[in-house]
Design a protein around this nucleic acid. Structure first.
Lengths: 129, 129
DNA sequence: TGATACAAGTCCCTAAATGAGACCTGTCTT
DNA sequence: AAGACAGGTCTCATTTAGGGACTTGTATCA
């Protein structure tokens, strides 16, 4: 398990640490974008329209929400569908590819849940020092 | 990541996310911190000194590397140890807590590796349109 | 002896990313 | 007639990040 990861890292190094051109890193950078994971989590419970997502993320500006959705759409994780209602509405949903990312993300969420108090303790200790 | 007001948190809860005690935001702030995951991956192969990490991430400024390391140290994922050499050197290593985060992160890396071509295709399709 | 290098940062200035909020188009309700 | 709604875009102010000079004390090089 651990050796496998070291091997992976070694692959990075063998490429001359050109992590800027590493495809895996470029993918992860989208995963690591500020709000995209939150969007994915909201969409996990089903398709949602733009304003519903906006209401679900009150501290994210529409501008950034739009940008996150475009990024996710571009990478094929989210699908955008326009309905010809009046006024037209737009629905976003996870693609199969997007759904396949949810399991790793859930592992992260589970980890956070499990270690939450340990982190809080460490933080308190650090801030006290 | 900026703190949420009580009112905003209440709305998150309405959507089924317990972000009041939210470990999700806490962990997401690391995952979305752009460089911290990379630091963790580099430290996975063993303790490293500041400049070794800097060489391993040539496109990250020292300023941001310092900040990432402080954040990780604060949350107890990374330990910082100063050696009284001349000049003094500083070594960073994963704590057990930090190591426990590596498995979820590896899942993310594995996912990215597995899906990278699918994502590249989606991206090409999107950009062509 | 003086010049230079190293370690691990910090500081300042500029550049880039982000937030807040006004504004847009076209129907629908009051 | 006056908003309201949907899904955005646009501009401007604030926040955050990058780049490089600078620090302190020792050690090495010429």
């Amino acid at each position: 398990m651990r050796d496998l990861s070291v091997a992976k890292l070694a692959r990075f190094s063998d490429l001359g640490f050109d992590l800027g051109n590493c495809p895996v890193r470029s993918v992860l950078s989208h995963v690591s974008a500020k709000w995209t994971v939150l969007v994915l989590l909201l969409l996990q419970s089903g398709p949602k329209r733009f304003n519903a997502l906006a209401r679900g993320m009150p501290d994210v500006s529409k501008r950034m929400l739009t940008q996150s959705l475009r990024d996710l759409e571009r990478d094929g994780l989210v699908a955008r569908q326009v309905f010809d209602t009046k006024p037209p509405s737009v629905e976003y949903r996870l693609t199969p590819l997007g759904e396949s990312l949810m399991q790793p993300i859930e592992q992260l969420v589970d980890w956070a849940t499990l270690k939450q108090s340990e982190i809080a303790d460490a933080r308190a200790r650090f801030d006290a020092a």
